[in-house]
């Protein structure tokens, strides 16, 4: 079954700029794929459409058996809970600890605090930041912040994982570790879509790769 399906999707921003043009592709459930392309090619825009942070100007986006254009507003939150997202700009909160940042999706979903704490520590351990749980993320390096974002994306074991430049600020070793982590999730059935510039990493991973150029999908679709 298809996890993500784009049919002739176009996105034109308010200023009249076409960020995506006629994008068609299907990502099967349980698949792991990369999304690449030059800066400004539309990678983040594509992920934002899946997250319902933006609406397509034309065409349809399906996630599972749900067509997002007809998803009522009050269902958006439930839609997002099924997805784990690593944001290009981290989107961490600097008014609380690393631990609380990672715990946020669990708090929102109403997990028992003890259960949540266990899961948060497990997630932080996976990204190698267990010792930093009490710190404020503002005191962390950019790469460490990125890993906090990764921990938050995986803490609730989502069935769909989206990552926007998750290794942008990481050294080769950490990048490798993060990719192994994503693969590990993929092996237990999580569908994974990773936007990245890092061609050497993508080549090493030997996965399906979607290539965007100027908003058009030029290969991998």
């Amino acid at each position: 079954m298809a996890e993500i399906r784009f049919t002739n999707v176009g996105k034109r921003y308010a200023e009249g700029h076409d960020a995506l043009i006629g994008v068609d592709f299907t990502l099967e459930s349980g698949e792991m794929a990369f999304l690449t392309g030059h800066s400004g090619a539309g990678k983040s825009t594509l992920l934002k459409l899946i997250m319902l942070m933006e609406r397509p100007s034309r065409g349809q986006v399906w996630v599972g058996d749900q067509e997002l254009n007809v998803l009522p507003r009050h269902q958006i939150a439930w839609h997002r809970r099924r997805i784990g997202v690593v944001f290009q700009n981290h989107q961490l909160l600097f008014d609380r600890s690393v631990f609380d940042n990672v715990a946020l999706p669990l708090q929102i979903a109403g997990y028992d605090p003890q259960d949540a704490a266990r899961r948060v520590r497990a997630a932080l351990d996976k990204v190698g930041l267990l010792m930093r749980e009490k710190q404020n993320p503002i005191t962390l390096s950019s790469g460490e912040q990125q890993r906090v974002g990764i921990a938050r994306a995986i803490v609730h074991k989502p069935k769909l994982l989206l990552a926007d430049e998750p290794t942008g600020n990481l050294d080769p070793q950490l990048s490798e570790d993060v990719m192994r982590l994503f693969e590990q999730f993929n092996r237990i059935g999580t569908t994974v879509l990773i936007a990245s510039h890092d061609l050497s990493l993508i080549n090493r991973m030997q996965r399906r790769t979607l290539v965007l150029r100027g908003g058009r999908l030029v290969s991998g679709g």
């Binding site: 079954m1 459930s29 349980g30 599972g64 269902q75 439930w78 839609h79 809970r81 099924r82 979903a109 109403g110 997990y111 028992d112 605090p113 074991k157 989502p158 069935k159 999730f185 237990i188 059935g189 999580t190 569908t191």
Partner: peptide
């Protein structure tokens, strides 16, 4: 909505837990 179709460990928050988490 919280039920995963397959794959990654499914966890549902039960009815009773939901009430207590709501109160909490």
């Amino acid at each position: 909505n919280t039920v995963a179709r397959r794959g990654a460990q499914v966890h549902r928050v039960s009815q009773r837990n939901r009430l207590s988490s709501w109160l909490r």
